[in-house]
Design a protein around this nucleic acid. Structure first.
Length: 760
DNA sequence: GCAAGGTC
């Protein structure tokens, strides 16, 4: 019997082949440079079989529209909700497919060893599809394994299962929805808003993409920015009490630092209430200690490292972007220095052998001493977190090389210290809580002495600050050294850091461990946002888009995470057999088509938002900045480069002209005007928009085309709907009038598109 | 030229 085994990636193929064959295999290069084919004999249920193990490079197939939908000009975006879609081999993976087909021709069984998660199941179905093209009689088996360890792998080999069709259907549903929704909205808003970027109305210009992950990601950034803009600071009052102990005198006879007590009420926003309470204390200021509580406390060591946790912590501690961290981790993994870097698992397998990996670090100059301590008796098994993706262990070092430098060194060191920290003991401290009372008002202070630092010594990214206070006894009385009624002001939140953004995405199930960094990168690449230091600012384009969509008044705005969460919940229902995938698909398409219709109808609101918030000069500045930071993809920066030559001219003109009331670079220009009322209808500043909405679709006739100039996009368009006109105040077409028309070569003009109107 | 999901 000949069995063709297929793993999701070359490293997994090699590991599984090594385990099954006990490293006794023959290896041959496939047509793809990353993929190797391993052949060996295996005893399967007391029978010797011939196995070939090969690999994929992730997904093999991609869903797309046919060539009839290729043109953005002749295909109406709304038709993409119904258009035919089909699967084809991903662009550069034809050689992988050729290899698989070749091997499948003579196989009796296709044995699928892809990762045991939802995507892995779908990838398995893709392999099956490819193999069926050349071999219709083979059986298809699915391997179910919980870890890349001999026992689970042999168990999976001898107890094969079937592909889980529900999971496959769930993934297919997601793919189709993401494609249809993404393409329809992207094409539509790109064509609608292109007039803000380009004055020739040719087909070039930036892509203003929409995606069910990238938009909510942008939404988080804009929401935080608006929360800051709309923040109203409030004054509050609090009683500050300090005590300077004689017992804390130092050697010079001076008293030690004062102990600051916290008022148990925190702070009050009412001055007179605070004043009355303060007066009571002031009249009778002797404090009595009413409670002294001493207890042993621990600071728990970290959990084993997952991808998302690595990105959250390392972006904060190492000053690198999530994308860069993943790039570096990928390279460390390929060098054999760390385990697979994309994992959700935060618990080690019960048979995991920790000691050799600890020993491996024992001679390092920086952290070797801690590895030695752990090896020589301080070891304690890592904690178990609550996640297990059943495919990969937590990220941990697998090799040692002292000759790595720069970012690789930083990320490797982080992973090693995390691993050693996990294998060490919790830190132990001694906490004292003292509660005192003055005239009925309660105050408290906490002291902390660290007794054993343990893991904190090696995992230097965690801090635990000791705070010494003098000894107090219950019943003791003391006179405060200072008792003041102080005022303060509430402060706005800070802009989001990458770490904050990753946490929000994780919490709202936006993206996966492998894609979160991509989505963040995408909003920079599209110039929807830019970074200042570690903080994410929305660009005026990002603000305009998000607030514009929010204005349309959907139950759940397209810029919010709820739609994606709903989709995720539906997919889980499909996997559990509670929902029919066809039904989910039909209902979702219907619902998104409806939202698309409303977006067309309400697009005036998005354009209005562009007129209010968008600043072309600022856009070009951010584009240049993001390009310098390498956030712009290579195939996308030609247009930005070309257009930047006209930047200065355009900006210079605009400043003194019809944009005077918004101020220059007015990222906050429009937003600021809305400070007290939240988003929405603030004054429009210098906008001269007539901002008609697209009411009256499909009505009216008459030859409007005569007035069109520069109409290089729609030469055959006979559209003549006179219902809406507006004059833009932004970008290279400032002062020009636009009017509504349909799509070229289409007889159905019941769709709004804006082409340039005469500007003479 | 669109999405998000794998992986190199």
């Amino acid at each position: 019997m000949r069995i063709l085994c297929v793993a999701e990636k070359p490293s997994a193929a090699k590991q599984i082949a090594s385990i099954l064959s006990q490293s006794n295999y023959q290896v041959r290069q496939s047509p793809n440079k990353y993929v190797k084919n391993y052949t060996f004999d295996y005893t399967l249920n007391q029978r010797t079989v011939s196995m070939t193990m090969t690999a994929l490079l992730g997904h093999l197939l991609d869903l797309d529209f046919g060539p009839e939908c290729k043109s953005w000009q002749t295909t109406r975006p709304e038709d993409l909700f119904q258009a035919q879609v089909h699967n084809s081999v991903l662009g550069n993976l034809e050689d992988v497919a050729i290899n698989i087909r070749e091997l499948a021709r003579n196989a009796d069984v296709l044995f699928i060893w892809t990762d045991c998660d939802r995507e892995g199941e779908a990838i398995g179905a893709e392999v099956e599809e490819i193999c069926r093209q050349v071999n219709t009689r083979m059986q298809v088996w699915r391997a179910r394994f919980s870890a890349m360890q001999p026992q689970p792998i042999h168990h999976a080999a001898n107890n094969h299962d079937q592909l889980d069709r529900r999971q496959v259907q769930a993934v297919k549903t997601r793919q189709e929805l993401d494609l249809r929704i993404g393409a329809a909205f992207t094409r539509f808003q790109t064509l609608q808003l292109r007039c803000y970027f380009n004055n020739t109305l040719t087909t070039s210009g930036p892509v203003i993409s929409y995606g069910s992950c990238q938009f909510p990601t942008l939404g988080f950034v804009v929401d935080r920015y608006m929360a800051i803009k709309n923040f109203v600071s409030e004054e509050f009052w609090k009683i500050d009490m300090e005590y300077q102990s004689e017992r804390m005198e130092n050697n010079n006879g001076n008293s030690g630092p004062a102990v600051k007590f916290n008022w148990k009420r925190g702070h009050l926003f009412d001055y007179w209430s605070s004043f009355v309470l303060y007066e009571k204390c002031y009249q009778n200021p002797m404090a009595s200690v009413i409670r002294v509580q001493k207890k042993r406390v621990t600071k728990r060591k970290p959990l084993p490292l997952t991808t998302v946790e690595m990105q959250k912590t390392a972006t904060r501690m190492l000053g690198m972007t999530g994308t860069r961290i993943m790039e570096v981790a990928e390279s460390l993994y390929r060098s054999g220095l760390i385990s697979y870097p994309r994992t959700e698992t935060d618990q080690f397998d019960k048979n995991f052998n920790f000691m050799p990996l600890i020993q491996m670090q024992a001679n390092d100059r920086a952290w070797g001493q801690y590895a030695q301590l752990i090896r020589d008796g301080e070891f304690e098994r890592p904690r178990n977190g609550g996640h297990d993706d059943k495919a990969h262990p937590p990220i941990h070092p697998t090799g040692y090389d002292q000759n790595i430098y720069g970012d690789e060194r930083k990320v490797y060191e982080f992973i090693v210290r995390r691993y050693l920290g996990c294998c060490y003991k919790d830190a132990v401290g001694y906490e004292t809580v003292v509660e005192a009372q003055i005239a009925g008002e309660k105050f408290d202070v906490k002291g902390l002495i660290i007794i054993e630092r343990n893991y904190l010594d090696v995992y230097t990214y965690d801090k635990w600050n000791a705070h010494t206070i003098p000894d107090f006894e219950e019943g003791q009385q003391f006179m405060p050294s200072s008792l003041l009624l102080n005022s303060g002001k509430t402060e706005p939140p800070k802009l989001l850091t990458e770490s904050d953004l990753i946490s929000l995405m994780e919490k709202n199930e936006i993206g996966t461990d492998a894609t979160i960094a991509d989505h963040i990168n995408k909003i920079l690449e599209r110039n929807y946002a830019y970074k200042t230091g570690n903080y994410f600012n929305p660009s005026t384009l990002g603000i305009a888009l998000v607030l514009g969509y929010d204005e349309i008044g959907f139950n759940s705005s397209l810029s919010k995470p709820f739609l994606r969460r709903e989709m995720e919940a539906d997919l889980k229902q499909i996997c559990e057999g509670n929902k029919d995938p066809q039904l989910v698909l039909r209902q979702s398409i219907e619902s998104y088509s409806h939202m698309f219709e409303r977006t067309i109808d309400g697009f005036g609101k998005i354009r209005y938002s562009m007129e209010t918030y968008f600043d072309y000069g600022e856009y070009l500045e951010n584009a240049a900045r993001n390009r310098n930071n390498n956030y712009t993809s290579n195939n996308n920066n030609n247009w930005d480069n070309e257009s930047s030559s006209s930047t200065t001219r355009t900006r210079g003109r605009g400043r003194g002209n019809n944009t005077t009331s918004r101020g220059r670079g007015s990222r906050g220009g429009g937003a600021r005007q809305n400070t007290s009322s939240g988003r929405g209808r603030g004054a429009r500043g210098g906008s001269t928009t007539t901002a008609n909405t697209s009411r009256g679709r499909g009505r009216g006739r008459g030859r409007g085309r005569g007035g069109l100039t520069n109409n290089t996009v729609a030469p055959n368009c006979n559209c003549d709907i006179p219902s809406a006109e507006f004059t833009t105040t932004q970008g290279p077409n400032r002062g020009r009038k636009f009017r509504k028309c349909g799509y070229a070569n289409s007889n159905d003009h019941d769709t709004c598109g804006f082409w340039m109107w005469s500007d003479t």
